[in-house]
Nucleic acid binder design. Structure first.
Length: 424
RNA sequence: GGAGAAAUGGCAGAGUGGUCGAAUGCGGCGGUCUUGAAAACCGUUGUCCGCUUACCGGCGGACCGGGGGUUCGAAUCCCUCUUUCUCCGCCA
């Protein structure tokens, strides 16, 4: 969430920039400022009363020690009312703090000044394109047909075992999944990321810290037996490693990578673009996460984009990088680049990665700070993450684009991992 | 799942109702000594909030696993939750 300082000192700017996200913050910001003022007034009063009580308690203790029992008892009665007042103020303070927090979490992150205005993905800006779109013959098959033809992906079986959106990979298909995971992890480790294998379920505090709660509660699978959520992305556990942590500035940037399955309910998205692997409830993804000094976080964002770009290039996929417009930007992000690859049989661009800078929005929620050498003050760090990469749509594009009369060609970079050059 | 024990600062560990944000040791930081380093010695060393301050800082409040309670006063007593350890059971 945004810091109170940010809102207090730049309220006009916050309101103005949130308009780029099509978010009208005017009223909420007003209420936040009023509630904050009230909170501080109550705290000042509580503190001074508490200070008095503390002082008197010490006096009473001293009186008892001097055996002045009557005086001590009189003093005890005298503080009774003070205690009542403090109790009332305390409750009020608590309520006000809670209310303030409830208001704060409804404010999305402020977009970076470079974010273009817009309402939907149609207003996103193409930053860069690369690779070549293959010319396929008219009878080219979409990946769901290829998956069936070569016994790589079984959607019906997944439906039997679990339900729609839980595909089963088989044979060379399963092997391709494993190869991609290993390839992506190796590339990340080569780029200096530490490999992490986190839990696939997280508690409420973790889901809250990265912003899944309360904003996207309906998108996560929740257990009914324990208060845990199935992770929608490795971002959640991996970023939360640093919840309530104070780092030394020299430790930055902190770079972690993790492969995990991801679980998403995808409530509200049906019909459009959900065929085959285009949208599923469980999928595999390698995520890269960085914690960086605020002065350098945008350089880091570029570095991460470059990393992801290197991956799609090695996979020889036609791609484009788009900067999300305000309306398409997620609740917690300040700036996001999406990667899309072209699936030549479907003739569709498929989103395979999302690389974002959250600035201090997540860090503030999870109290992730760092300290400059020699300084006593702590500052909020910046958090960033990106998919590197999400598998299903990569597989869709690989299968579709590389189909030949002899079978499906595996890009050279992947062959050491698959152990075969051709699916046939 | 059952029984017992425990949770204190970066770490180890003392503290069982007041003068305790907390002894001591280690670690960290600054210094003395040294050509340099080590050792030794001296000093310093948590976080958050509020008020104040041009700045250094000052004052007040909170925090000894989380939440609640008893008391004029709680690290210390009580309740509750969580976690860890030991034993038993189950188990890949």
């Amino acid at each position: 969430m945004l810091t109170l300082k940010q809102i207090r000192e730049n309220s006009e700017e916050v309101i103005r920039r949130l308009k780029v996200k099509n978010f009208d913050a005017e009223e909420i910001v007003g209420r936040i400022l009023a509630t904050d003022e009230r909170r501080r007034a109550i705290q000042t009063e509580t503190d001074s009363k508490q200070s008095e009580l503390n002082r008197r308690s010490k006096e009473i203790g001293a009186l008892f020690k001097e055996k002045k029992i009557d005086e001590a008892n009189a003093a005890r009665e005298a503080v009774a009312r003070l205690k009542e007042e403090i109790k009332t103020l305390h409750n009020e303070l608590h309520e006000t703090e809670e209310k303030l927090n409830e208001l704060l979490v409804t404010l999305p992150n402020v977009p970076h000044p470079s974010v273009p205005p817009g309402n939907s993905d149609e207003d996103n800006v193409i930053v860069r394109e690369g690779g070549e779109i293959p010319g396929l013959p008219g009878e080219a098959l979409p990946h769901w047909d290829l998956g069936k033809k070569h016994a790589l992906i079984d959607f019906d079986l997944g439906n039997k075992l679990t339900g729609a959106g839980f595909p089963v990979f088989t044979g060379q298909g399963a092997r391709l999944v494993r190869a991609l995971i290993s390839f992506f992890l190796d590339e990340a480790v080569r780029a200096g990321y530490r490999e992490v294998l986190p839990p696939l379920m997280v508690n409420e505090a973790s889901a809250y810290a990265t912003g899944q709660l309360p904003d996207k509660e309906g998108q996560m699978y929740q257990l009914s037996t324990d208060p845990y959520y199935l992770i929608p992305t490795a971002e959640v556990p991996v970023t939360n490693i640093y919840r309530d942590v104070i780092l030394d500035a020299e430790e930055l940037p902190v770079k972690n990578t993790a492969y995990t399955p991801c679980f998403r309910r995808e409530a509200g998205s049906y019909g459009k673009d959900v065929r085959g692997l285009n949208r599923v409830h469980q999928f595999d993804k390698v995520e890269i996460v960085q914690i960086q000094h605020p002065d350098r976080s945008y350089d880091t964002l570029e570095e991460m984009v470059k990393h992801v770009e290197g991956l799609v290039q090695k996979l020889e996929l036609p791609y484009r990088i788009v900067q999300l417009c305000g309306g398409d930007l997620s609740f917690t992000s300040a700036l996001t680049y999406d990667f899309e690859v072209y699936a030549a049989a479907q003739k569709k661009w498929l989103e395979v990665s999302s690389v974002s800078n959250f600035e201090s929005y997540q860090a503030n929620r999870m109290k992730l700070r760092f300290r400059e050498k020699g300084s006593k003050k702590t500052r909020l760090a910046h958090t960033l993450n990106g998919s590197a990469l999400a598998l299903p749509r990569i597989i869709a594009a690989l299968l579709e684009n590389n189909q030949t009369p002899e079978g499906i060609r595996i890009p050279a970079a992947l062959v050491p991992y698959t152990g075969f050059e051709m699916i046939s």
